[in-house]
Simulated scan of single mutants.
Amino acid sequence: MKQFILCIALITIAASIQAQNNQRVIEVKVSGQGEPLLFIPGFTVPGDIWEPFVKQLEQDFECHVITLAGFGGKTPIDFPWLPQVNSALQNYIIANNLSNVTIIGHSLGGTIATWLASRDSLNLRQIILVDALPASGALMIPNFNPDNLVYESPFNSQQLNMTDEEFAQMAAGMSRGMSLNTSSQEQIKKWMVNADRKTYVYGYTDYLKLDLRKDLKSINIPVTIIAADTPYGKDMVTKTYQSQYANLKTYDFILAENAAHFIMLD
């Protein structure tokens, strides 16, 4: 009997530690009632970006809005960062019995949604991917090999050693290509500047290393992909998505015209 009680106590402690770890890795705001929706933002972006949509949808749906560690003022975590994020979200869905959940993810958030959809243990209804790819690194890096991407690199060191002013200038330049809206560009820049610098640098390395193209074969739920046509144009964007999602059995593809990467802001 004593051994049984000890086992129960250890299981309870382990579950408590796991829950605490999940809370450190992700922050979740829940509102509304109905079928569950899970919103995952993109890299450096807090969950607040989904607020206009949540206000409309929470009348009919239970909305779970995620902010990731290191972003939106949230405490950073140790590395590797992205595997912990993926696991925490999977554990959150299971622990909260989010059956038949729809996941809506932008950019990195869409990549994470793709990873979750490829897990056999989750009962998902569908995923909606907003300008998201399963292997961004393969698109951006010639002769892509995830093993060659490491934290300790000259490029990462350069970004870590930037002054705040230099980093802000870089963020301003990048944000101009992410939205067609001037005020949105300024907000995107602020999100980047306010992100924990190490999470920005090493977390992006995690992001580029992730290649889910083979995992697409395991996805059997409906997938909707919404892609921006700016700045590359309809033909190139369509070709890119067809190539990256070639292993996905079927999906609905929507091209958002006159929109850049942050489609929901444009």
Rank of each mutant, 00 (worst) to 15 (best):
Q33D: 14
L37F: 13
D48M: 12
E62C: 15
N86V: 05
E165G: 12
T224N: 07
W50G: 09
A132L: 06
G137T: 04
I127D: 00
L38Q: 02
I141W: 10
V28F: 05
P76L: 10
L180A: 10
F43I: 09
G34I: 04
W115P: 03
E257F: 00
T75G: 06
F262C: 12
D211S: 09
I128R: 03
W50S: 07
P146I: 13
T240Y: 10
L82G: 08
L108Q: 09
I40Q: 01
I219N: 11
G32V: 13
A195F: 07
F253N: 03
A15T: 13
A168Y: 05
W115A: 14
N148Y: 13
K217L: 09
D252C: 02
Q158E: 04
I219D: 07
T67P: 07
T111Y: 12
A227H: 04
L180V: 10
R24N: 02
M192T: 08
L57N: 08
D131G: 01
A246H: 12
A228K: 03
A227T: 09
A228H: 05
G177F: 15
D235P: 05
G173R: 13
Q90S: 13
L6T: 15
Y207I: 09
R213N: 11
I26V: 08
Y251K: 03
G72C: 13
P36E: 02
Q59I: 00
I112N: 02
H261N: 03
N247D: 01
T102H: 09
T67V: 04
N91I: 00
T44R: 05
S243A: 14
I13M: 14
S157K: 14
N123R: 13
F71P: 08
I49D: 01
L57Q: 13
T114W: 10
G233S: 03
L116M: 08
Y200A: 14
H106P: 11
N86F: 06
I17Q: 04
Q84Y: 06
P222Y: 06
I221R: 05
D266N: 15
Y241I: 12
L216W: 10
N194M: 09
D211H: 09
Q126D: 07
V193K: 08
Q33A: 14
S136Q: 04
A132W: 10
M236H: 10
A14Q: 10
E186Y: 04
K189I: 03
Q187H: 02
S118E: 03
Y251N: 00
N145D: 15
Q3I: 08
K29C: 02
S87Q: 13
Q126P: 01
Y241P: 02
F61G: 05
E35D: 09
N96R: 07
Y202K: 11
I188S: 03
G32W: 10
S87D: 08
Q33F: 15
A9Q: 12
A259F: 03
T250W: 01
P83L: 11
A195W: 02
F71D: 04
